[in-house]
Design a protein around this nucleic acid. Structure first.
Lengths: 249, 249
DNA sequence: GCAAACCACCGAAACATTGTGGCAAAAAGA
DNA sequence: TCTTTTTGCCACAATGTTTCGGTGGTTTGC
C-alpha cells in the first residue's frame, strides 16, 4: 500500500522532469566516424548534441556556454592525454558539470585516474549503445533527483494537459504549447474545472479582461489552433451553444 | 611526459577528497569470503561498512536506518534476482539513495536493467579494488557537489553561470562578468529558479528596489549587454511578453 | 423549412509591451 | 571637492498581442 503510493509520487515527479528541455551534451572525440556514430545515437534519444574533434575546439565552445554533460575521449589526435587535460579545465570552469570518459583505453590505471580527476563515469568503447545510453540516463537521473523537488499548487495536470503557473508554460502530452498571457489564463480557467461550462463573461474575468464577446471567440479560435498545431486531433475545448465553452477533460 | 604530469596532479587531488567524513556503506553479498574482502577494503579506506548476506537481512536494517551508499550483488543465495528486488525496494524508501551493483553478471542486458532500475553504477566483480574505490569516491563526490549549494548558500551554479553570493561576483563559463549590485541581485533572482517567470515587481523586490517598471527593463538591457560582451551568443534571459523575464537554464 | 441567434474564421487596425540610446540625478570613490 | 560609476527615467522604435467588424456556416426554436 505504502509502497504503491510512493511509487506513484515518484512517477508524477518523473513526468515533471520529462517536460523539461532537452539536455545539451558535448561530445569530444577525434575520430570523425565514431564521433558521428555516438552523436547520432544520442540525438535519436532526444538529446541535443554538440560534437568536437579537438581539445581546443571544445574549449572555445565551452567558454561560450557549458553543456549539461560532457562525454570525452582521452586520446585526442596527437595529444595522448588531451581528454584528461580537458576534464581538468572543465572542472575549473564548473565543479558540478557531469563528465563521462568514453575511450578505448581500458587499463585500470586510466580508469582510476579518470575518476579521480573528477569524472562521473568511465566507459570503454566496447560498451554497446544501449549501455551507453543507460549510463547517460542514470547520470541525468542522479542530477535531477538531487535538485529541489517542488511541485503541487503551481502545477495543474488534466490528462495530457499540464499547466505550470510558475513557468507560465503549457504542455500537451509533453509537447510545449506557446500561449500568450490571455490565452494561458483562459485555458487555465477552463481546465481548472473540467466539464464545467464557462460563459464568455467568466472567461474574461479570469483573464482580467473586459472586452467584447466576439473577442473571446477569437481567443478560443487561436487557442484551439495552437493545440491543434501540436496534436491535430485535439478536441478538448467543446463549444456549448448559447452557453460558452467547456474543457472536456 | 605530459601524461606523468597530469597524473601527478590527479594524485594530489585525491588527497583532498580523502579527508572527507566517514560514510556508512551497506554491502549486500551472499558469499562470506567476498563480502569480507570488500568490506575490509572499504573500511581500510575510511568508510564505515555494514555487511549483509541476504535481501531480508538487509531490508530489516534499511528500514531502521538507510546507509549513505548501498552496494548490491544481484544473485543472493537462492534468489537469483534478489539484488534487483532489493534495489527496487530501496528506491521506494529513498529516491536519492546512491546504489551500486557489484556482481559477477556481466551481460549488457543485466547492466542496462540495473541502471534503469535506478542504480547509479554497475560494476562486475573483475574490477580491481582501486577501481571500485575510485567509483565509490566518484559517486560520493557527485553527491557532495550537488548537496553543497543547499548547505552553503553562497554559491549558485546554473550551467555556465556561477554566482558567488559572498563576493557578489558572477562568472560565465569561467569568465568574470562585472555586474553592479542591483544587476547581481536581478540575475540571482532569475537564476535561482531556472525556467520560472519573474515579473518586474518580483525582480524589484529581490533587488530591494521600488522603481518604475521601465527601470527594470533598463537593468535587463544592461545585464544582457554585459553577458553578451563575454559570450556574444548569450541567450539565457528570455522575455515573456506581458509576464516578465525568465532564466532559461 | 425558415428565420433568428450564434459561432468560426480571416485580416487589419488598435493597442500594449519591450528594446534602445541617451541623459540627468544620485551615490560612491579619489 | 571633483570624478567616476551606478541608477532611474524618458522618448521613440520595434515587436508582439488583442480587438473587432465582416463573411459565411451552423444550431436552435417555432
Amino acid at each position: 500500500m505504502v509502497a504503491a503510493c510512493v511509487r506513484l509520487r515518484v512517477y508524477s515527479c518523473k513526468l515533471l522532469f520529462d517536460v523539461a528541455m532537452p539536455r545539451r551534451i558535448a561530445l569530444v572525440e577525434d575520430d570523425p566516424a565514431i564521433r558521428a556514430n555516438y552523436a547520432d545515437a544520442l540525438r535519436k534519444h532526444g538529446h541535443e548534441v554538440q560534437a568536437y574533434g579537438s581539445r581546443g575546439e571544445a574549449m572555445v565552445a565551452f567558454r561560450v556556454r557549458l553543456p549539461d554533460l560532457a562525454i570525452l575521449d582521452i586520446g585526442l589526435g596527437d595529444d595522448h592525454d588531451g581528454g584528461f587535460a580537458l576534464c581538468r579545465d572543465l572542472r575549473a570552469l564548473s565543479a558540478g558539470l557531469p563528465i563521462i570518459f568514453l575511450t578505448a583505453r581500458d587499463s585500470d590505471f586510466d580508469v582510476v585516474s579518470g575518476l579521480r580527476m573528477g569524472a562521473d563515469d568511465y566507459l570503454t568503447k566496447d560498451v554497446s549503445l544501449p549501455h551507453l545510453l543507460a549510463r547517460v540516463a542514470a547520470l541525468f537521473r542522479r542530477i535531477d533527483v538531487q535538485r529541489e523537488p517542488k511541485l503541487a499548487e503551481d502545477l495543474l495536470e488534466r490528462g495530457s494537459l499540464a499547466l505550470d503557473m510558475k513557468r507560465f508554460s503549457a504542455t500537451w502530452a509533453g509537447a510545449r504549447v506557446e500561449l500568450t498571457l490571455t490565452e494561458f489564463w483562459m485555458v487555465h480557467a477552463l481546465a481548472r474545472f473540467p466539464g464545467h461550462v464557462k460563459n464568455r463573461e467568466q472567461l474574461m474575468r479570469e483573464a482580467n479582461l473586459v472586452v467584447d464577446d466576439d473577442t473571446v471567440t477569437s481567443h478560443m479560435k487561436r487557442i484551439r489552433r495552437k493545440f491543434q498545431a501540436i496534436a491535430p486531433a485535439f478536441d478538448e475545448i467543446e463549444t456549448v451553444y448559447g452557453m460558452g465553452y467547456r474543457w472536456k477533460g
